[in-house]
Amino acid sequence: MAKDDFDPHALLETLERQRVTYIVVGGLGRVIHGSDELTDGLDIVPSTRDENLRRLGLALEELNARRSDGKTPALERDLAREPVLELQTDAGELKIVPEPAGTRGYDDLRRRAMAQPLGRGLRPSVASLDDHARMLAALGREHDRQPLLTLQRLIELDRGISRGIEL
């Protein structure tokens, strides 16, 4: 699978078709909020309820998802072992992150996530700008410094001076 074949609409359409409940995070989520970076994959935080994981498993089958070792993912087993499940699919990279750094997972992010229209009738829930900044800050990685500064500036530009500071 070449990185040039990344097709976020195809990934999202499959998740929607299988009625998976999830929130978009990571580079693509930041781009949707206005960050000027490039990304090669889709990162999602799924609800970890049994029925949802079953639906996610069906979506992964449909996308012909493979782990880095070429094996078919076994969701519950893999998610119990790894904090991030990195997969290659027919529509590009897909990362499944049940509990991103600095968060308590789906239920935590859901409260501030918003449905974002992306065309082809897709309106996935995308984590808020603040939560994206929170996740990057919690990771504390040097290469995330610039994306984090960009997010912080986006937050400032987006809000202008509309928010009050308590005295």
């Binding site: 781009v31 949707i32 206005g34 000027d36 490039l38 990304t39 065309g119 995308v126 960009t150």
Partner: peptide, 22 residues
């Protein structure tokens, strides 16, 4: 650049990124 991105819709931001990747 960021101000311009904020004036776009989410769909337009995604399309712009995909064009830039190409």
């Amino acid at each position: 650049r960021l101000q311009k991105a904020l004036e776009r819709t989410p769909q337009e931001r995604l399309q712009a990124m995909l064009r830039a990747r190409g």
